[in-house]
Design a binder for these strands. Structure first.
Length: 497
RNA sequence: GGCCCGCUAGCUCAAUCUGGCAGAGCAGCUGACUCUUAAUCAGCGGGUUCCAGGUUCGAAUCCUGGGCGGGUCACCA
């Protein structure tokens, strides 16, 4: 029901529609019937007539009433269904007088069913000449303004259904998103990966460096977390004998909200036994290329005013080289390997690292400030410091680095991959070091030691290449959106009052 | 969290700089109209200008605080 807080004008509109609803009921019309007759979608009906204009085609169409133009004894209306719009016309001489009069009790936004015959109007529009109509769902509130749609950004997010109703280009973004997710699933299945569903509620929020959401299970009387990654459970499946697994799912990180971050977001993680991160690089290039060909029919997209070519091969750039080139800091030198030394060097270059940040945080900031914004064309950054990556295998010949890459497009991180660490003793030690760092730096973002996971690796895990792909950000690139809220149907907002 | 911007009728926007009756289009209501498609024509109604306080004879407008949203910086993989 309409609530009493509501402005008077809105209340009046609501009550006017309620009165029409009552009148329909008084005439014995059920405004919310259980069954619908539909023979054609609106685009099917139009095609049917255009294929053969000389035959009489009877159709029953349905849809939302978008416009209505009454001209005395003749009324035109537009219905919109999932396939598009179709015009219908009501001629008074084809109706019982009461039924024609009752068109007045219809409102924009109502769902209607119309049966009749297809014809072409004098102005050329394929139209259903109605013999009968029925209300399928009376709307008590009006649709957004018909020329300008809904512009208010806050309302677009809070009432996304109105946004979808009014703005075609918004609807198109989510159609593309669906096609992208579906294509990713097909790509993985075609390569022999099987899809897994692992728990969202977990006893330890491990597998990434991020702050978790905390919740509670009453019957078990214990604290649980929402997963911050799907990584560890998927690797347990490698231990169990699946050689190729993936999961498309929501993960949750209790961190800031901005144009590139929503607290819940969707990733595709995959693990392939007997592969390494170089194999994964090729898979990512190939997957993204396939997606851009699907959505654009070519390998290039325009993003934030820049032309980006996603065709393989992508640039491969060692992280250490990237940092050296754009900051002239040699991350491997002795003095840069301490937090104090690195912080001082960053300050000399005009950066503003926090006083209490840990060394991995500083490196992260260095990447974020100086490297990431320059990676507009697709680029793999290779080989990260071991301190910031506890789940990856060390690079051959340099124990300070691990085999890890991140994939960047348009200055955004979209992929993260390791040659997975499968040495249980080293794994336990590396995660233990994360625990100690978290204590020492009071930084909740260090990874956590999950004993169950270590036990699993102790049973023997095959060598593997793993991947995490940020689906929201990929969809941003593929739809030209510069904020994540435009590719998430219901982005997180503060609640009102 | 800092800074900047925004919030006016159901919707899209004016009026805010320079304080002086808060307007328009769409939507709604009444009527006319058998070829409209942003229908048209005639008429009507609709406002706690985000909230609270202040300055003033007078506040949508200026000031202070707050809310929500957007941008940006910081933080955050």
């Amino acid at each position: 029901m309409s609530n009493e807080q509501e402005p008077r004008a809105a209340q009046a509109h609501f009550e006017s529609r309620l009165a029409k609803l009552e009148r329909l009921r008084e005439r014995g019309v059920d405004p919310y019937p259980r069954r619908t007759e539909r023979t054609h979608t609106s685009s099917e009906a139009r095609a049917l007539f255009e294929d053969d204009e000389n035959t009489e085609h009877g159709v029953a169409v349905v849809g939302r009433l978008m416009t209505m133009r009454g001209m005395g004894r003749l009324t035109f209306a537009t219905l919109r269904d999932g396939s598009g719009d179709i015009q219908v016309s009501f001629a008074r001489d084809r109706f019982d007088p009461d039924d024609y009069q009752a068109l007045k009790d219809l409102d924009l936004g109502d769902f209607l069913g119309v049966s009749g015959t297809l014809y072409r109007t004098r102005t050329g529009e394929v139209t259903v000449q109605a013999d009968s109509y029925s209300v399928l769902g009376k709307a008590l509130r009006p649709p957004p303004e018909k020329w300008h749609g809904l512009r208010n950004v806050e309302q677009r997010y809070r009432q996304r259904y109105l946004d979808l109703m009014a703005n075609d280009e918004v609807r198109e973004i989510f159609v593309v998103r669906s096609a992208v997710v579906s294509a990713i699933r097909r790509f993985m299945e075609d390569r022999g990966f099987i899809e897994a569903e692992t728990p969202v509620l977990v006893p330890v929020a491990a597998g990434a460096m991020a702050a978790p959401f905390v919740t509670r299970h009453n019957a078990l009387d214990r604290q649980l977390f929402l997963r911050i990654a799907t990584e560890l459970n998927l690797k347990k499946l490698l231990v169990g004998g699946f050689e190729r697994v993936f999961e498309i799912g929501r993960i949750f990180r209790n961190e800031g909200i901005d144009a590139a971050h929503n607290p819940e977001f969707t990733t595709m993680e995959s693990y392939e036994a007997y592969a390494s991160y170089t194999d994964v690089m090729e898979m990512v290039e190939s997957l993204v290329h396939q997606l851009v060909m699907l959505t654009h029919g070519k390998s290039t997209v325009t993003y934030d005013g820049q032309e980006i070519d996603l065709a393989p091969p992508w640039r491969r750039l060692p992280l250490i080289d990237a940092i050296r080139e754009w900051s002239e800091i040699d991350l491997l030198s002795e003095e840069m390997r301490t937090a104090d030394g690195l912080r001082a060097a960053m300050r000399e270059r005009g950066l503003t690292p926090a006083e209490d940040s840990s060394w991995p945080q500083l490196v992260d900031k260095l990447i974020g400030d100086l490297v990431e914004p320059r990676l507009i064309q697709p680029t793999f950054l290779l080989d990260y410091p071991i301190e910031m990556t506890p789940l990856a295998k060390a690079t051959e010949g340099d124990a300070r680095l691990v085999e890890r890459f991140e994939g960047f497009i348009g200055g955004m991180e979209v992929a993260n991959s390791f040659t997975e660490l499968n040495d249980p003793i080293e794994q336990a030690a590396r995660l233990q070091a994360q625990e100690e760092n978290r204590e020492q730096f009071r930084d909740e973002d260090f990874d956590r030691l999950d004993e169950d996971f270590v036990t699993a690796v102790e049973h023997g895990m095959p060598p593997a290449g793993g991947l995490g792909l940020g689906i929201d950000r990929l969809v941003m690139i593929l739809t030209g959106q510069t904020t994540i809220r435009e590719v998430v149907l219901f982005p997180q907002l503060r609640t009102l009052e």
